[in-house]
């Protein structure tokens, strides 16, 4: 049983077709890394998965919640935004630039979606948030404002914030690209720990070492299509497709 299933997913911006029909199934508990050249549509794929971009055509199903459209000309009914919102509640998203809310403390950042979005009692939400901050090693910093945190701390905070939803799936869009090299590992090790716990994770990344060491599958994309999917040891050492090989040559 796959927890994420994508069928014939298409998305264009104006004339520019960015996703040209993506099909993908992901089993629970897997860590999937998406790699590819800049502009090939990786971010767009993630953003379309949780409805931040509206898909043109195809079907997405995540943890039992689906979004679908027959064609781009299909009028968007009122239900679409509701459905997208329901789906997002099961789908944590971590952005390259952290996007913590600067007007509230780290703890409040983690609490907000629980009390406002999920109507969980505040004391319960605080307890859960503190536990999550502990898990990402930030319990000592919970009362700080986001601007007082380092990049690595901010990104771990953003992961804790996304985890507060108890999501079925985590989406990461280049979570370490904005970090100083010495801070990259503290974020990646949080992702590895989550993998150990059985979290399903989809990560767009340029960290080839991480993709090779930690992921269950690597997806190579080019110009809006998936070129090759493979277990990391296979894909990195003997890619089937020439295009994958050419891309990887730069890194090896």
């Amino acid at each position: 049983m796959s927890i994420v299933s994508i069928r014939g997913l298409k998305k264009s911006f104006g004339e520019h077709e960015v996703l040209k029909g993506i099909d993908l199934d992901i089993e629970p508990g897997q860590l999937i890394c998406f790699i590819g050249r800049s502009g090939c549509g990786k971010s767009t794929l993630l953003r379309t998965l949780n409805g931040l971009e509206v898909l043109d055509e195809g079907e997405i199903e995540i943890a039992g919640h689906s979004l679908s459209r027959k064609s781009k000309t299909d009028p968007l009914d009122d239900k679409f935004e509701k459905k997208a919102q329901a789906l997002r509640k099961h789908c944590g998203m971590v952005f390259q630039d952290f996007r913590l809310f600067p007007h509230m403390s780290l703890l409040e950042n983690v609490v907000l979606a629980q009390t406002v979005g999920q109507k969980i009692p505040r004391d319960e939400a605080i307890a859960k948030s503190e536990a999550l901050l502990g898990k990402v090693g930030l319990q000592a910093h919970k009362d700080k404002m986001p601007l007082q945190l380092s990049g690595g701390q901010s990104q771990r905070g953003a992961i804790a914030r996304a985890l507060a939803l108890s999501p079925a799936v985590m989406l990461y869009d280049e979570p370490t690209s904005a970090l100083d090299p010495e801070l990259v590992d503290e974020v990646l090790s949080v992702m590895k720990a989550l993998d150990q716990e059985g979290m399903t994770q989809l990560a767009v990344t340029h960290e080839m070492r991480f993709a090779r060491d930690a992921s269950d599958y690597v997806v190579y994309m080019e110009e809006g299509s998936i070129v090759e999917i493979g277990a990391p040891d296979v894909l990195f050492s003997s890619p089937k497709d020439d295009r994958t090989r050419q891309f990887l040559r730069k890194f090896l």
Partner: peptide, 24 residues
């Protein structure tokens, strides 16, 4: 970006405006 972060947490548009956009 800030609104998107709110939406990505499963907040509605209204909640995002109310708790994230307006205070800032």
């Amino acid at each position: 970006a800030q609104s998107e972060a709110g939406l990505a947490l499963g907040l509605s548009n209204r909640q995002t405006v109310r708790y994230i956009v307006i205070p800032q």
